[in-house]
Amino acid sequence: MRKTKWKCSTFYAWWVPILFLLPHLIAFCCFNLVPILTGIYASFTKWTLGKTPEWVGLNNYVQMFFNKDSIYYWQLRWGMESTIKFVILCVPFKILIPLILALFLSSKCRGHKTLQTFYYLPSLLSLSVVMVSWRYMFAPSGGIVNTLLSLGKLNWISVSPYNWVALIIITVWWGCGSNLVIYQSALEGVSQEILEAAEMDGANAIQKFINVTLPSISFPLQYTIVTSVIAEFGIWGQPDMFNKGGPTIEVINGVNHQSNKMIMQYIAESGFGSSGVNAGIASAMALILGATIFIVSIIQFRIMRRSDI
């Protein structure tokens, strides 16, 4: 009798939770774990997909980190450099602009619901729709931006730094809707009592925002900063469809450095290009990018925890 009881409790304690977890575990293994492990394995091979992968050990990493004669050495450097530059330039706007808009909407001004829809609308559009539209708008000759601002034939597409400005405008316009919704719901939760108390103590609007609102929305803020950084590290579609990576700005060892070509573009080029597949190099680059994002996220969390944003 005691034995049966023990069996039942063991079953409930171990197997029932596992049964509940099983669907997720299966999905996780199929769509996360196996691809990650395959990617790690592929990064140590020379693999054209059509043939069996050939084990090359650390050769792909050696090429990318130490062989200055290899195109992949420069692609990794320049790709990471452009991506980090983009993250640094873009993420602050992706946080600040939706936050300002959310604060404005939280004042419940007339037509705020319509405005909210209007601000969120771009997030629903597909990448190709966004890029084709903006490509036309930024066209140097006849583009609506140059026409409206009387900028003549200013080349937003293939002249630095205008290509960067255009890419940031497009990315912020397209992506600020999702952060806006998060900030709006967070602002709804800010205690009115504390705000009123601060006001009675003589705090002005800026003081109330810094000392009451900001600490109250610290978790959503942290979340959006981390997710925005991760998302922008993976930027690929906008520069690829806008100007294919932009103009060449220098040539070193027979490799041309394109102004705004991101690491994901190099990965896609090696892994899926029409010139043939180099899955080994593409996987190694992707793992380096993944590791970078992981490290940056950890640092972000540490800094935020310490400063208690």
Binding site: S70, N253, G254, V255, V277, I281
Partner: peptide, 29 residues
């Protein structure tokens, strides 16, 4: 592309880059 014609790189660099990148990408296949 037109990088050589627009003057972003010299014609000598254009030739070197075209050759080097082709050779290295071919060897990967």
């Amino acid at each position: 592309g037109w990088d050589g014609v627009y003057g972003n790189i010299s014609s000598a660099d254009f030739a070197d880059t075209w050759e080097k990148q082709t050779i290295e990408k071919v060897s990967a296949q």
